[in-house]
Amino acid sequence: MSLFGLKTSNPAFTNYFWENPRSKSASGKMTLQGVIAKSVFCLLLVTLAAAFVWKLYFDGVSITWYTSGGIIVALLCSILISVKREWTMPLTLIYAIAKGLFIGGFSAIIHGKFPYLPFQAVIITLATFLVMLFLYLAKIIKVTKKFKSVIIAATTVIFVIYITAFILRFFDIYISFLWSSSWYAITFNVIVAIFASLSLLLDFDFINKYVGKAKKHYEWFATWGLLVTIIWLYVEILRLLRKLAVR
């Protein structure tokens, strides 16, 4: 069973994006090494873009346009990837840079108030990624259809809440359990971080099914999908650490 035709909570791994992935006209096949290489390269772009904005912030330069522009461009890239699959490679690179600008500014602001918190979030994110990869490879957690349905349903609700909260902020309406440091807000943040972590298992499973079968350029879809989940996980962990620091 799946929700809205999705096989993973990550939009990059929907049936739509992977339509006819086993076409005989493909030149080369998707490999795990290819996905890893592209993912590492894009994470490097994220890091460089984040470091650029980080430096600007501590040099006293306003970074509002960088952070706001970054999240908007990243959103536009995601939309374009959904309708122009042949543009996935350049759009994924732009997405990585744009998200780097956003998290660079977001992280710098938090670091300014709570020193070294972003570095802790990076370490926890990396550790979580490795743990989830181990759990998947060791088959300690099996990605069954029921498991997928639960994760997809939960993440769909989470994103609806976030989108609704984002729109309400334009009307000066704030959802307290999203932005405050109350124990309700912290509990919600913990739950979101858990589902972000579990989403990695679904992504690993979907990529594994198409290694050696999908066309070579689908490695960029896989890379974009992993970026979406990893950056989401990092942001949630950093938000959680900030709330705990305030407490």
Rank of each mutant, 00 (worst) to 15 (best):
M89Q: 15
Y162G: 14
L168V: 02
I207H: 03
I231E: 01
G34Y: 08
L43H: 06
L44T: 15
L126Q: 00
A121N: 01
F119G: 05
L238D: 07
F171C: 09
K145S: 15
Y210Q: 13
R239C: 06
V235R: 05
P118K: 04
L135T: 02
T92D: 07
C42P: 06
I194K: 03
S23G: 13
Y66V: 02
Y95V: 00
G69M: 03
G34N: 08
K99I: 15
S82H: 14
Q120V: 13
L244R: 04
L198H: 00
Y184P: 03
L241C: 07
I186E: 05
F129K: 02
K24G: 07
D203K: 03
R242N: 09
Y162V: 12
N10F: 05
V35M: 11
Y66R: 06
C42Q: 09
Q33R: 14
S180H: 08
S25Q: 14
K38M: 02
T88S: 06
A12S: 08
K216N: 13
W183K: 13
I194H: 04
I231K: 01
V73K: 02
F58Y: 14
N208V: 02
K148R: 15
K7C: 04
W65K: 09
A153F: 09
I175G: 01
Y95W: 10
G34E: 10
Y66Q: 10
I141H: 05
L130Q: 10
G69S: 08
L178I: 11
T64H: 11
A153V: 09
Y210E: 12
Y57I: 01
F159R: 03
L117Y: 07
A193V: 00
T92A: 13
T187R: 08
V192Q: 01
L226M: 15
A165T: 05
G212S: 12
F195E: 00
A74W: 03
I141K: 07
L43F: 13
S176M: 11
S39A: 08
R22L: 05
W220T: 02
K113F: 05
F41Q: 03
W87Y: 12
I97D: 05
T128A: 01
L75M: 10
Y66H: 13
K146C: 04
F134H: 08
G28W: 12
F159K: 05
S39L: 15
A127T: 13
W220R: 02
L117N: 04
N208G: 12
K29S: 11
Y218G: 02
I152S: 01
T64Y: 12
F13Q: 06
A98W: 04
Y210D: 10
I103G: 01
V246R: 09
K209T: 04
W183H: 11
I207Q: 00
T31E: 13
T31R: 04
L32A: 14
M1L: 11
W224N: 11
A193D: 00
G212T: 07
Y95C: 03
W54H: 13
K209F: 10
S2P: 10
W224D: 06
K209Q: 11
G60C: 11
A12D: 06
R239Q: 13
K145T: 15
Y16E: 12
F170V: 08
V40K: 07
N20A: 12
G225N: 03
F134N: 02
A127P: 01
L198I: 05
G28D: 11
F114W: 12
R242W: 13
F171W: 09
I158E: 06
F4V: 07
K139S: 12
T156P: 04
